[in-house]
C-alpha cells in the first residue's frame, strides 16, 4: 500500500524529467529530479509503494525513457491514468513499470489518500474510501511482456521477438 500522488492531464516528459537532468543513465540521479518542475517535494517525500494517479495523456512529449525510469527509480509502484501517451506507455511496459488505465479510480481518488494495486488482477483499491476499481485488461501480447517483467526478459525467454 502507498499514498496517492494525484496529477492532472497532459503531464509531459519534460515535466517528469527535465531535459537538463537527463544527461545520465544513473537511475538514482533521475529519481532525484522526478517531477521537480511541478512537485518539488515529490523526490524527498515519495515512498516505496506509492501510486501516481493522473488524468489524460500521461507522459506525452518526448520518447525519453528517462521518464518512466525516473518514476520507477523513485519507488512508485504503478501509474494509474485515464489515458497514456503512446511512447510513454510502451516504454513503461518495456522496462517493467506497471501502467494501468482506469478512469474510475482516478476520478474517485484524492491526492494523499492511501491505495493498493493488485497488479495481476488489475485491481486498484482506494484504502481510504474502501472503493475497488478494475483497470482495463491488456492485449494478450502486451500482457506477456508485462508478465515477463519487460521486453528484454520477454525476448530472452522466447529466444527472439515473436
Amino acid at each position: 500500500m502507498g499514498r496517492i500522488w494525484k496529477l492532472g492531464d497532459n503531464i509531459n516528459t519534460d515535466v517528469i524529467i527535465p531535459g537538463r537532468y537527463n544527461v545520465t543513465t544513473d537511475r538514482a540521479q533521475l529519481a532525484k529530479y522526478c517531477l521537480c518542475e511541478i512537485l518539488p517535494e515529490f523526490a524527498a517525500q515519495v515512498r516505496q509503494g506509492d501510486i501516481i494517479m493522473a488524468g489524460h495523456n500521461f507522459g506525452c512529449g518526448s520518447s525519453r525513457e528517462h521518464a518512466p525510469a525516473a518514476i520507477q527509480a523513485s519507488g512508485i509502484k504503478a501509474v494509474v491514468a485515464r489515458s497514456f501517451a503512446r511512447i510513454f506507455y510502451r516504454n513503461a511496459i518495456n522496462i517493467g513499470l506497471p501502467v494501468l488505465i482506469c478512469e474510475e479510480a482516478v476520478l474517485n481518488s484524492e491526492d494523499g489518500q492511501e491505495a493498493e494495486v493488485a497488479l495481476e488482477q488489475g485491481v486498484i483499491t482506494n484504502l481510504t474510501t474502501g472503493q475497488r476499481f478494475q483497470a482495463q485488461p491488456l492485449p494478450p501480447f502486451i500482457a506477456r511482456i508485462v508478465e515477463a517483467g519487460g521486453i528484454i526478459e520477454y525476448i530472452r525467454r522466447e529466444g527472439t521477438l515473436r
Binding site: S63, R64, E65, P68, N94, I95, I152, I155
Partner: peptide, 10 residues
C-alpha cells in the same frame, strides 16, 4: 515512429 531506448536497443 519514435520509440524509447529499450525498443531501439531491441
Amino acid at each position: 515512429t519514435g520509440m524509447g531506448s529499450t525498443d531501439i536497443g531491441v
